[in-house]
Design a protein around this nucleic acid. Structure first.
Lengths: 143, 143
DNA sequence: CCCATGTCAGTATTACTGACATTG
DNA sequence: CCAATGTCAGTAGTACTGACATGG
């Protein structure tokens, strides 16, 4: 593989774009006392209240164990809450607290601005195909 | 942000695609006794022999310290080598050993197949714009 | 002096694996 | 029995910060 081929590697530019986004998010979220995985977790819970740990893990593309660590941090910070016992299954539905919702709201504004800046360099007509292509690639790998 | 907005978030699908690729690479490279960061490091060195630790770190989007850990692992495994002292600067040029080149060659075949499978679900005419868009997005965030 | 580099130390977050009991 | 879940334990990879000496 030559240098040209590396620059032209979809995997490489994918990683580059993701690293740039992650770095920008880490920096912005630090001011809100959140890590990027924590933010992702809050975002998922805001959209689908009551998701279980395992469901959150799948949504954030991490293991159950990793998500459990993230959840424990959020719980200690009073941003989410879990019932002590499950109603019927084993899954414990997680919900945002009022403080969690408020923290998310403020952090979201900054993250939204980052994403706007990232996507803003593209022509608006590119966004839809880009979303479709990335989704199909993930599905193509069984993701 | 609604569920539709999350699915439509460029950041989210970007992460999803990258997670799928990373997972596939981790699985494939395990059989070659390599981690994904180690593989990326070998690939960079194959293309540009003599890169320093700091240059490799920038190329792989990790910190100097993290890359140093990766390099130490590769050095212990006899896949790369560094001179004990720098010729003129402080930077130590890293080079693949014969074994490193051979290990990379075999691993590369599997990784190439994964990328082929990932990109294969797209129309060939989509690849170029995709590369360009991802590159521009990274640059737009200062990556 | 300034800056990039290599390196050491310590710590934190995230990740993995394996394992096990529980629930439906 | 089987599948999914929550959880415990151990380990590993990657990240951060701060610090320091070195070389150009």
């Amino acid at each position: 593989m030559t240098q040209d081929e590396l620059d032209a590697s979809v995997g490489y530019v994918l990683k580059r774009a993701q690293a740039a986004l992650r770095g920008a998010m880490d920096a912005a979220l630090r001011e809100h006392g959140l890590t990027t995985p924590q933010y992702v977790c809050l975002e998922l819970l805001d959209q689908r209240p009551g998701l279980s740990n395992a469901e959150l893990a799948r949504g954030a593309f991490v293991s159950r164990q990793s998500m459990n660590v993230v959840l424990r941090g959020l719980e200690e910070g009073g941003l989410v809450e879990r019932p002590a016992q499950a109603a019927h299954g084993r899954a414990l539905p997680v919900r945002l607290t009022a403080e969690g919702r408020e923290r998310l709201r403020r952090a979201h504004a900054d993250v939204f601005e980052i994403e706007r800046r990232m996507v803003g360099v593209l022509g608006p007509e590119r966004v839809e195909p880009l979303l479709a292509d990335l989704t199909r690639m993930a599905e193509g790998l069984g993701g």
